[in-house]
Design a protein around this nucleic acid. Structure first.
Length: 278
DNA sequence: AAAGTGCTCAACCGCCGGAAT
DNA sequence: GATTCCGGCGGTTGAGCACTT
């Protein structure tokens, strides 16, 4: 028996959803919950395939969907997460509460992707002709946002399974005077991860990740190479291991990895987890 | 005002991994 | 272990709208 087609096209509605269909779907999911998408249309009385129902619910009807313009902070986060994760839209969306993978993917493909491509050499390693003022502006904007080379995969791409963000880290207010007393520069890279380590229970911060799996994926050849690299003269590279054992704990190893490879981007901000502010 | 062009974004498609049988 | 089913993902499409000529 062969694999049956995902959606039988006979007699099913296609294209844009009507408000009536939306109401039926929303009411049904509210009562019966998500899941069982294949059987849902029949049980709910919708002439749609299950996949279409699932998509409509997740991208449009689901409570908490944030609609409207993507803010500057969100845009910045998308760019940095994309640099880290690649086209893992669901994973990126998981770090942006209220945003869907489809929305972020569209936003990237229509705006950010073009802007990144418009960045001149040596920032993206591509030959780009900046003949239009608009392109120059976009490139300049991204250049300012890019502490490290955009478009180049500077670090190993982490490929954990995509999960939705269930907890948002909102850091406690930090007293700038207290920071001054401690000679801590507000929002310094050095301080950023220390903030996480001090303020966050690692088990909560990584609640959405399968840490063991994440680590197993980090421990590939590239990651080991990154860990073994000697520090560079300009201090832009990865720090050495100081002779310490590689495997301390999942949390310490992740933090040590990011501390070495990612501190230029990782900052703590309001309501985002983590906020990769410029 | 009309035609052409570009942009946005909801929806579709095909593939894949994991669970169930 | 093999097969089937289901949900999830990323890539792509195309209708509708906005802007330009």
């Amino acid at each position: 028996m062969g694999r049956r087609p995902p959606c039988s096209k006979d007699g099913l509605n296609r294209g844009a959803w009507s408000s009536h269909e939306d109401k039926i779907l929303a009411d049904y999911v509210k009562v019966h919950g998500e899941g069982k998408w294949t059987d849902l249309p029949k049980r709910a009385g919708l002439k749609r395939c299950g996949k279409s129902c699932r998509l409509r619910w997740l991208n449009y009807l689901r409570p908490g969907i944030k609609r409207g313009n993507i803010s500057h902070e969100e845009e910045d986060l998308i760019i940095r997460l994309h640099k880290l994760l690649g086209n893992r839209w669901s994973l990126i969306a998981g770090r942006l509460p209220g945003r869907t993978d489809n929305e972020i993917k569209n936003y990237w493909n229509t705006k950010l992707g073009k802007e990144v491509k418009a960045i001149p050499e040596p920032f993206n390693g591509e030959k780009v002709l900046q003949s239009k003022p608009k392109e120059r502006k976009a490139a300049a904007s991204l250049k300012a946002k890019a502490p490290i080379e955009l478009g180049k995969q500077s670090h190993p791409v982490i490929r954990p399974k995509a999960v939705r963000c269930t907890q948002v880290y909102i850091p406690p207010h930090r007293d700038d005077h207290k920071m001054a007393d401690q000679n801590l520069e507000p929002h310094s890279n050095e301080h950023a991860l220390e903030s996480i380590l001090e303020d966050v229970d690692p088990s909560k911060f990584f609640v959405d990740f399968d840490v063991e799996k994440l680590l197993s994926e980090l421990y590939d050849d590239d990651f080991l190479q990154v860990c073994m690299d000697e520090p560079r003269e300009d201090n832009s590279g990865v720090r050495g291991l100081d002779g310490r054992s590689m495997m301390l704990s999942p949390w310490s190893e992740i933090s040590r990895h990011f501390h070495g490879a990612m501190p230029e981007e990782w900052r703590i901000g309001d309501g985002l987890q983590p906020n990769l502010a410029p």
